[in-house]
Simulated assay, not measured.
Amino acid sequence: MADTHKAGAFDIRNVIGSLLAIYGVILLAMGLFADAETEKTGGVNANLWAGIALLVVGLGFMAWARVRPIVVPEDVEHVTDDPTRPAPKKRPRGGH
C-alpha cells in the first residue's frame, strides 16, 4: 500500500470553518459589547445569536475535518491517456 498523508490546512473544510469561526467571534463580540439595538430585531440580540451559530458551525466544520481527514496518496499511477486531448466527437443521431 502506498504511503499517505492528510490534507491538513489545505482541506477546504478547515478554510470554511476558520472563516465562519472568525465571523462568529466578531459577531459574538459585537453582540456582547456593542449596542444590541433590539428594537430593530423584535427584541432579539441578532448579533449575539448569529455569532453563536456561526461559531458553532465553524467549529463543527473544523471538527469534521479532524475526525474524517482527507487522505492524499504519496504515489499516484502515471496517466497513460493525455488529459489535454479533446474527447471524440459524437455522431449525430438518426441521421446520415
Rank of each mutant, 00 (worst) to 15 (best):
A2Q: 07
T4M: 01
T4I: 10
H5C: 03
A7H: 11
A7T: 11
G8K: 09
G8E: 14
F10S: 13
D11H: 14
D11K: 06
I12H: 05
I12Q: 10
R13P: 01
N14V: 12
N14K: 13
N14F: 10
V15Y: 12
V15N: 06
I16L: 13
I16Y: 08
G17P: 02
G17F: 08
G17V: 05
G17K: 11
L19R: 09
A21H: 05
I26P: 00
I26Q: 01
I26C: 00
I26N: 00
L28I: 05
A29S: 08
A29Y: 08
M30W: 12
G31A: 06
L32S: 09
L32M: 13
F33V: 08
F33R: 11
A34W: 12
A36T: 15
A36V: 04
E37S: 01
T38W: 01
E39R: 08
T41V: 04
G42N: 03
G43T: 07
G43Q: 04
N45M: 10
A46K: 12
N47L: 00
L48K: 08
L48G: 01
W49L: 06
A50D: 06
G51C: 03
L54V: 00
L55F: 10
V56S: 11
V57R: 01
G60H: 14
F61Q: 00
F61N: 05
M62F: 03
A63G: 10
A63V: 15
W64S: 06
W64R: 09
A65P: 09
V67A: 09
R68W: 10
I70N: 07
I70H: 15
V71F: 14
V72I: 15
P73T: 12
P73G: 07
P73F: 03
D75P: 02
H78A: 04
H78E: 09
T80D: 08
T80V: 10
D81G: 07
P83T: 13
P88W: 01
K89S: 05
K90R: 05
P92A: 07
R93C: 03
R93I: 12
H96Q: 09
H96E: 10
